[in-house]
Each structure stands twice: as structure tokens, then as C-alpha cells.
Nucleic acid binder design. Structure first.
Lengths: 207, 207
DNA sequence: CCGATAGTGAACGCAACCGTCTTTTAGGGT
DNA sequence: ACCCTAAAAGACGGTTGCGTTCACTATCGG
């Protein structure tokens, strides 16, 4: 039952590469290391020493910028966050939901997606208060609102049943993606998308 | 951004109560403390010292029984786990799903439910390997199989659409419960049950 | 080239926790 | 009452990481 208790060191620059970076380049490396350490071990197990080591820099360089681990994580999240997703009118709720699912699968399979997923999994820990606001404003609520928009349009168009444009229905998509990410190993495959649409989402909203 | 970094001490026996317990009574107190510490801070932040303190015992008493923190958590989970849920034939998929949702809400609002929820949230951390087998065998798969049984009966009976008796559909219920538990503060209320049924589950499976 | 400054690497004292050990105490059984 | 033994309490040496400091070095801009 004894396993290493720390996130694994991330791969750093290749050997022979000049190691001293300044300013933005160093920050990018630090952010990358921070998100990776966060993902592989959770917030508690992520350490400033680990991040510094993975970014091949010194702790002093981290503490010159950030007072705490949480400050660093928050800045790393903000820096890596993609722009808000679009939820354009594609003429059918099915096409729109398919695009959303594809988009979210792509994000979840990315570094920032994995980090967000980790924090979502820790939302009910006491330290999650640190990130709750960010996750609600930048992840949870935009997702729900965007899908709600699709459902409203669908209701008006007629390809979504009346009464479906509510947050509970909008939350099924993110809930299923997170559950799938939790329960199964590895990346979410694209065929998951078609099954989620065909078995769950479209039957649920059909008129 | 500085907050306490450890789970809060659980309430122990009242002052003046004799503190020395032996055997099963002490183990029960230790298990309770372990699950509470696990829930409030996650696996990483739970410590043997914290558990010992919350159970008002000494570390030596813990180490006499369990070689490691993970061993303790596993035994605490096994001891606290309710018997497998029943999924009886109630004559309609609606009634059956309502009973399941009620049952799971009740479990999720309990100590063992909160602990399981915490571990579900950490399933993709490296240390989650320790509990993955347990969670799959005792939580995830029984849930999916039980709901699948309901869906199959419903298909045969005619109140569930053809093609709905698949794991993807069966996973919507636990996925939504976990998402709700993650995203919203506090206990899951019973009116959540009716909305989940009325807006999501029944529309999704209706013929 | 030179000066300013950020980065590097090492070291430091401290806190928290681990796992172990010892002495004392008290609960349970006979 | 007596005895056995598990539990309580405290201490210990070791490890890890924190946050800080310092001397040196590399980089950038003038």
C-alpha cells in the first residue's frame, strides 16, 4: 500500500536547453508545472517545491510573484483558461449539442481541462472555497447558461420539448462528462459523444 | 488566502465522559473520525494524527491495527457501507426511479455517503488507485446494474422506450446526484428528487 | 561595456506529521 | 481482588515542505 505520495515530476525542457528564463517565459513554465502537479495529485499534494522543480526554477522565483500556492493556482487557471465557448445557432438543437459536447470533450482532454476537472472533484473540500467563485463564474455557470440558450432556442424552434429549458436539464451534459471522466480511465473518446447524444440528450429533450 | 490547512477536529465525547474505550467501541470512534477527516479535507489532508486526535486516542492504537492510512480508510469504508440497495419491481419505472433517487439522496447525505463522494472526486488522482476497485465494485457498478435492471423491466413492461436500457442512460442518475452535490452547498433536498425525475429522467426514458 | 535586476542554488529554522517506543493507567475477565 | 493487556500519553528521531535569506550569476537594456 505504499506508493509515492507526490505528483510525478513533469518533463522539463530537454537537456542542453538553456535553463534560465525570465519574465513571461518563466511564468509560462511555472503555470504549466503548476497545472500538471495539480492534476496528478490534487491541490493538497501539490507543493511549491514540486512546481519549482518541475519548472526547473527556484522557489524564490515563485515567491517573488505569488504569496501562496493558491495564488499561483488561481493565476495559472486564469492564464490558461480558453475564451468563453460560443453557442451559435446551427439550426437544430442536435447540431448545437453535438458541437458543445465535442468542444467540452476537447477541453476536458487538455491540460487546463484536466486541472479544472481536478478542482471540480475537490469542490466540497474546505479549501475549495478558494476556487469556488472562479469555477462557478468561469466554468459552471457559463456552461449551464450556454446550454440553456440552446434549449430555449430549441423550444422556440420546436425541436426541444416544452419545459426542457431549465438548469436541471442543462446540467446533464456537464454532469455526464465529469462522471465519465471520473469513472473511466484515460481520455474521453469521440464515440462517447454520439452515444451521449443518441441515448441521453436527444431522447431527453425531444418534443 | 491563508486558511487552516487541516480538516477540522470532529466533536469527540463530551467532557467528563470516560475516554478509554477498547476493541470495537474504539474502532467505531476511529472509523467515524477517519471518515469525517476524509470528507472535510480529502485523502491527502487526512492524517493519522488528526484521526487519532478526533477519536481522542493515541496513534499507537491506530498503528496496532492498521499499517497505513489507506488501510484504515478502506476498513472504515467497508465497515460503514450500507447493504446493497434493493431495486424492487414496483410496477412502474417512475416509482422505481423515485425510490432509487430518494435512497441515494439519503445515502449521499450520510457520513459514509459524504466520504464516498469525496473519494469519487479524487478518483483520477494517482492515489485513487487504492480505492478504485472498492468504489467500482461496491458503488459504481451496483448502481449502474441496479438502474439497468429498472430500465430493462420498464422496456419489457412498456413504460421505458426501446434502447434506453444501456449503461449510458443508467449513469445519468448518479452523475446528476454527484454533480449536484459538487456544485451546490449543503445537503441535497428532497424537492431535487422530483425535479430530477420530472425534468430529466422520465422525459429521457419515456416511450 | 556596465548597471540593474531577476533567476539559481543552497541553506536555514520551523512546523507538521510519520512511525516507533516506553511508561503508566484503566477496563475487562476470572 | 487480582491479573493481563490494550489504551493513553508523551517522547523521540526522521522526513518533507514551508517561507525566507543570501551569494552568485545571467540577462537585458541603456
Amino acid at each position: 500500500m505504499d506508493q509515492p505520495d507526490r505528483p510525478q515530476p513533469a518533463d522539463g525542457p530537454a537537456e542542453g536547453t538553456p535553463l534560465r528564463r525570465r519574465g513571461k517565459a518563466l511564468e509560462a513554465a511555472i503555470f504549466e508545472a503548476a497545472l500538471d502537479q495539480l492534476t496528478s495529485g490534487g491541490f493538497a499534494r501539490m507543493t511549491m517545491e514540486g512546481v519549482a522543480g518541475a519548472a526547473q526554477t527556484g522557489k524564490a522565483a515563485l515567491y517573488r510573484r505569488w504569496a501562496s500556492k493558491a495564488d499561483l493556482v488561481m493565476d495559472a487557471l486564469v492564464a490558461a483558461m480558453p475564451p468563453p465557448a460560443d453557442f451559435p445557432d446551427l439550426g437544430s438543437a442536435e447540431a448545437e449539442l453535438r458541437q458543445v459536447v465535442h468542444g467540452y470533450i476537447e477541453v476536458l482532454n487538455s491540460r487546463i481541462g484536466a486541472a479544472v476537472r481536478t478542482l471540480m472533484g475537490e469542490l466540497d473540500h474546505e479549501r475549495a472555497e478558494l476556487f469556488k467563485g472562479f469555477l462557478h463564474e468561469r466554468v459552471i455557470e457559463p456552461t449551464t447558461e450556454g446550454i440553456l440558450g440552446i434549449l430555449r432556442r430549441g423550444e422556440a424552434r420546436g425541436d426541444v420539448r416544452r419545459g426542457a429549458a431549465v438548469p436541471m436539464v442543462a446540467d446533464v451534459l456537464p454532469a455526464m462528462l465529469l462522471y465519465r471522466a471520473r469513472v473511466c480511465v484515460g481520455m474521453i473518446e469521440e464515440d462517447f459523444c454520439e452515444e451521449l447524444l443518441g441515448r441521453v440528450l436527444l431522447p431527453m429533450i425531444r418534443p
